[in-house]
Nucleic acid binder design. Structure first.
Lengths: 242, 242
DNA sequence: CGTTCTTTTGACTACGGTCAAGCCGAGTGG
DNA sequence: CCACTCGGCTTGACCGTAGTCAAAAGAACG
């Protein structure tokens, strides 16, 4: 089993990346350990507290963020001034890379869900690396291609599935996002029901309703914000179509 | 005004690419004329008739398709065995590049809407170019980044807009797709109402209903498959939110 | 222990999907 | 030249999924 051994360019711990779902694109699928080291050597480490804003929508990027420890959520202001959750990122991943490469302002805000460190790589150094190192650039193409496939998956999720399917999909995705902590069946993320809902593109009323439906039919067990997946098979079946 | 002067590596005609909407990603935004020439020199030209299948979903790619002349539609089989339209591509564009880079089977089928020529580049030659030429690889990163942004736009279209907004968005996109022919206000594409509907993620009943609503309120004029956009401002307003 | 925010549940509403019938237009044959 | 047929287009009536709104219960914070 391939491993993705990074944590902040400080200490090197093991993180299993082969479990990465389609939905949680990992840098480790395309970049080698040395590639990531090369990248991290260009930047410096910055500390963020729980709930802190890493960068803000509409601002111009001034550094590529390499997320090293905890889960980061991407949010976007909707027409009603509410922040919709767009995606969740687990370590190791690159934040804001699309905007940097396209030379546009951030499309989303990035928020650390837990206390975390990130590595910030100056844009010029990153671009220089890409323009000089064909193999690195090639691997980044692979990473971006996966992000495209992931985006298509997301569209399919929202256009082809009903409440139950979307929520099941979300739960499986959340599990993939936070399973790097070693927990097996339990989703333990500090996200509200409203976040859960907007990640599934539904109202929180419906997310809660559907979740309690899952709970009553023995698919999951709810303990506050913690969700334990009981019936994996049925949940996967629902996420395919239900 | 920048121009994108390609047609099949055979004769060189002018195609304006600066008009490219966000929705109709063009290769010319990221690759230079010389880059595209370099690419085309690796492959050979193949001719396709109107309605002909360029490649089929679930098959393994055996060449990168560079689309040179006419509009190509991407379709995906849905659960009911019907082909949903996923995207439309105008020249010059690369088809199946995501699958080739990710080394997976085609996610969609590609169909030529009109008689056309494509340039087919052997995968090994293409990969070799990427791995050797850092600058080319870098520019392809830009292209893929645009595709990611485009995919996000698509998700937004489907999750945040109602029938009218989605259809307005589709009409503006279709115009961008086929305006390379020189027509100014008219969308002249050989696609059925059902295609129009599935491109807008709605039933054909609703696409037709909404289209005739647009027609009655003077937004568009319908002449068979041809759609002439009359009230651009209102259509753009609707596509933002309606 | 009260204030405030989040979660939960219920009743109502509306957007959009389903289904079916009628219409139009192109191609075919009498 | 005019029925006839067949496929896509159009419209209407009905229904189901999911959004809105509100009220109450619970959790978190000082």
């Amino acid at each position: 089993m391939r491993t993705c051994p990074f944590s902040g360019g400080m200490s090197i711990s093991k993180r299993v990346c082969d479990q990465c779902a389609f939905q949680s694109v990992s840098l480790c699928n395309s970049l080698s350990e040395n590639d990531i080291k090369t990248l991290l050597n260009l930047g410096n480490v910055v500390h963020f507290k729980k709930g802190e804003l890493i960068y803000k929508q509409d601002m111009r990027p001034n550094g590529l963020i390499c997320q090293l420890n905890s889960v980061v959520k991407m949010v976007k202001l909707n027409d009603h001034g509410v922040e919709d959750i767009v995606s969740l990122h687990k370590p190791v991943d690159l934040l804001g890379i699309t905007e940097i490469i396209s030379e546009i302002p951030y499309q989303y805000s990035a928020i650390a869900l837990e206390e975390t460190q990130v590595n910030i790589i100056p844009i010029s150094k990153f671009i220089n690396l890409l323009q000089k190192n064909a193999m690195f650039s090639f691997k980044l193409n692979k990473y971006l291609a996966w992000r495209i496939l992931d985006a298509h998956h997301r569209t399919d999720k929202f256009t082809k599935k009903h409440l139950r399917g979307r929520l099941a999909d979300t739960l499986l995705a959340l599990h993939q996002i936070c399973n790097f902590k070693g927990e097996t069946d339990t989703i333990d993320l500090q996200i509200s029901r409203a976040d859960l809902a907007s990640y599934s593109n539904m109202t929180s009323s419906n997310a809660i309703r559907t979740l309690s439906e899952f709970s009553h039919s023995g698919l999951v067990e709810l303990k506050g914000k913690k969700i334990r997946i009981v019936n994996w098979e049925e949940l996967k079946r629902l996420s395919k179509f239900g």
